[in-house]
Design a protein around this nucleic acid. Structure first.
Ligand code: MN
Ligand code: MN
Ligand code: ZN
Ligand code: ZN
Lengths: 143, 143
DNA sequence: TTTTTACTTTGTAATCGTTACAGATTAATT
DNA sequence: AATTAATCTGTAACGATTACAAAGTAAAAA
């Protein structure tokens, strides 16, 4: 098994994206944190390792990673964008109590609509909202 | 058939929301514009009829309409929230070329996942992105 | 290796959607 | 008509994102 660093480097090379230190760090961060981080979270955490890191760089890096298809955008929240390196089809559930975003398996490919017969579909997203099991438990305890 | 005004008034009364002139206007606007308008669009258009209207009022009104379940939020765009008075289940397609957001019928109820067995689901959203038929046509013409 | 060059990073300022707030207004009740 | 609690309005503040120009650097060329 190759090192993560080497794997990520190859991914960038394939996509003809220059292998800067910052880009590799952001990419590494996303593979280690599958919890759909915000730019702020990535920035605060990576600054510990790369003190000169700029927030603008994270925005720029994410833009090129998204454009090349290595990262997907999660817009389940209306005020802050989240990012996900898992690009294979899956749904997202946001707990309205604790705010956590959960992945779940769902057959997105089976989602068809005759209304979209003449549309070119590039991207499918499924977002659910509600209360997660952990929060349901704590709510019941209070009662 | 009742007048739209009377229908909307009754909706608000049922939900115990005070029937202010501004709220009725926003609600009327949403029933006449099913194209998922932004706050800015609602503001610019309604200002012609209600010159003293404040943008804050539109935000406040939408908040109470959403809370009462009369309006749903569309977060298919990452930078600007859109609103939809059609609360029955349907999917949304955003054309990445012209930006228009289309409704489409899709069996959202059939979307199930064993991963969510112990979750309380309050809301389901399906967002697709791609190119709409009209834009596909104009792209082909250029080639 | 050194040089060159185009791309990237950085910090700051600007932008823009949204929210907070306090005083003026008003819908609904008495 | 008087009362009152909710709503509306305008302005300021906030926060995520983008624009921009100068400094730095990865990769190709010499
Ligand atoms: Mn995910
Ligand atoms: Mn709709
Ligand atoms: Zn939770
Ligand atoms: Zn289009």
């Amino acid at each position: 098994m190759k090192s993560t660093f080497e794997e990520l480097s190859n991914e960038l090379k394939k996509k003809k994206i220059r292998l800067s230190h910052q880009r590799l760090k952001v990419l590494e961060y996303l593979t280690l944190h599958l919890c759909h981080p915000t730019v702020e979270q990535i920035y605060v955490d990576l600054q510990k390792e790369v003190p000169t890191l700029s927030k603008t760089t994270i925005y720029n890096t994410l833009s090129s990673l998204i454009e090349s298809g290595l990262v997907r955008v999660i817009t389940i929240e209306d005020h802050e964008t989240r990012y996900d390196i898992r690009t294979e089809n899956h749904g997202h559930f946001k707990c309205e109590s604790c705010g956590e975003i959960y992945d779940f398996n769902v057959d997105i490919d089976s989602l068809q609509s005759v209304d979209l017969n003449n549309f070119k579909i590039n991207d499918k997203n499924v977002y659910f909202k509600g209360i997660c099991p952990r929060c349901l438990l704590s709510i019941n305890k209070i009662k």
